[in-house]
């Protein structure tokens, strides 16, 4: 099965192309701190290049996998709209995966000693999106804490149970001091463990349940309501 997977939950644009032999090609775009995300302008272009490099075309794909977030709202919508549009155009399967799980599983795979991982993304406005995962003895990854938006001082409290915790993601970098104060290890800022990879999206997407029509069932995981709705209720 040839799977195209991508994620736009963070400012980065990460694309993976899993070939029939199970190997994966990857491309990514990480904007500098003063640059805007390249989701709208880079995602399809990078995908086109990856396909070309493998001697493939969109028509050769069997499945599209997309990171559903949580993350930046506009980024998620560009990713999900692109994934749905491609799947609808080609009439192929579409699978949505959790961006936080992808982040955690990516870290577990490359870090042999990390069985407890907090996936933390910067949610802006002084909050983080967080989920907690455990690598079980059977090799499966269990979700201990479902994705939620949390204030930085509450991040560490999630890591009370279990063994040694480490936290990955741009939110882990941003809120390093709060996490370390709670005994959670955070890899160096420049560590690739903090990056969501297209490869993990492809792997999770290949295993996930997929839809072959009704593409609207694959929706962004916002985890936050629009400000206007909350403001209206407070009136």
């Amino acid at each position: 099965m040839i799977v195209l997977g991508f994620d736009t939950a963070t400012p980065a644009t990460a694309v993976g192309l899993r070939l029939a032999d199970g190997s994966t090609l990857q491309a990514r775009d990480d904007p500098g701190s003063d640059e805007h995300p390249g989701h709208a302008t880079r995602l399809l272009a990078m995908t086109h290049e990856l396909l070309g490099g493998a001697g493939l075309r969109f028509g050769d794909l069997d499945r599209i996998a997309v990171g559903l977030g949580p993350g930046t709202f506009t980024g998620l919508r560009v990713g999900v709209a692109t994934a749905r549009g491609l799947a609808q155009s080609l009439g192929i399967e579409l699978a949505g995966v959790s961006s936080l799980r992808a982040l955690a599983e990516g870290a577990m795979r490359s870090e042999l000693d990390g069985s407890h991982v907090l996936a933390v993304l910067d949610a802006r406005r002084g909050e983080a999106f967080l989920a907690a995962y455990e690598l079980t003895d059977r090799g499966s990854v269990e979700e201990l804490v479902a994705p939620c938006a949390l204030a930085p001082e509450k991040l560490g409290s999630v890591a009370q149970r279990g063994g040694e915790w480490r936290a990955v993601g741009d939110g882990a970098v941003r809120f390093r001091s709060q996490l370390e104060a709670a005994g959670v290890a955070v890899p160096p800022d420049c560590s690739p463990l903090h990056l969501l990879s297209g490869e993990t999206i492809c792997d999770l997407g290949a295993r996930a349940e997929a839809v072959a029509s009704s593409y609207e069932a694959v929706v962004p995981d916002y985890r936050r309501r629009p400000d206007a709705e909350i403001a209206l209720e407070r009136k």
């Binding site: 692109t82 549009g85 491609l86």
Partner: peptide, 19 residues
């Protein structure tokens, strides 16, 4: 822009899938 990007991303992808 956020609204435009949903339609534009969808349309670009619909077109790209079939070149």
């Amino acid at each position: 822009v956020g609204a435009l990007l949903v339609g534009l991303s969808t349309a670009k992808a619909l077109a790209a899938g079939r070149e």
